[in-house]
Design a binder for these strands. Structure first.
Lengths: 144, 144
DNA sequence: TTTATAATTAGAATAATTCTATTTTAATTG
DNA sequence: CAATTAAAATAGAATTATTCTAATTATAAA
């Protein structure tokens, strides 16, 4: 086997799935593995390629299903940029995204609790946010 | 004619286009009119329907072209929500978006300069943001 | 006016995502 | 530990969103 989830992550996945009455299948586990292993922001297509190294027969539809399930379970986040396919992100800590127009690279930008609180102040009374997606586009002038 | 741009808006459009060496065509003017007139967040399809009341023969490709041009000119912003077609927004003041999961309605949430400054603090040294897209998803419990 | 170039157009092509019908698998129960 | 049942996976078609292409039309400049 190429890689596998830590016991902690595996348990987290199983608990989250059970909490929703869903089954821990090898496809779901493998998609989650792939997402956790390389902390970038793959599209569904890229996830398919990576998962196929473990499960050569998995279909794109299943990848979409699994990703949707993981998002519903709160284990993965979706990231949107203008006119571009959805990307998926395993980082559950509060953060924003920055896409460099030069390189296409996407960076996670951590947000401290203070900033997060500040952000929430723009919500009017009666607006309850379940999640947010904050994306910057611009350029970076130094290597990260 | 059903409606038209104010002189100020028309002048702004023409100036912006000229600044980029682009021509003020009736299609571009009409798409801009439609976007300014109803301050919601239409998809390209919805823009097509509205513009066709003025220009019955305009094509979807042209609508996409015009919208892209307006975005490039900084007169219109794109708004992204998970797995949903791009929406277009005429509000150029700093603001975020909130999509209500109950009604599907999208609200503009103004951001004061202070909040905007605070947001920028999450950008590391060397990251220059050209624009940002902040979207909340959640529910509203009162009529706006 | 003519000319050169840009923009529009229709429709085809592509890309992203979802749906459908069938098969397989996991969990449950006798 | 079989048989059952319901969920999930699968292939591929369908749909939706967006882009591209090649031909036509319109704009601006000379």
């Amino acid at each position: 086997m190429a890689f596998s989830l830590t016991d902690k992550d595996k348990e987290g996945l199983n608990r989250a799935l059970k909490g929703k009455g869903l089954r821990p299948t090898k496809q779901r586990t493998s998609v989650y593995e792939v997402i956790l292993r390389k902390k970038d922001h793959p599209t569904a297509d890229e996830v398919l390629l990576r998962v196929r190294r473990e499960l050569p027969t998995i279909s794109l539809a299943t990848v979409y299903n699994c990703l949707e399930t993981l998002v519903d379970c709160g284990l993965v986040r979706q990231v949107n940029f203008d006119r571009a396919p959805t990307r998926f992100c395993p980082n559950l800590t509060p953060h924003a995204h920055f896409k460099c127009t030069r390189t296409g690279e996407i960076f996670d930008l951590p947000m401290d609790p203070n900033t997060l609180e500040h952000l929430k102040t723009i919500l009017p009374k009666g607006f309850l946010a379940e999640n947010f997606d904050l994306s910057f586009v611009g350029s970076t002038n130094q290597l990260q």
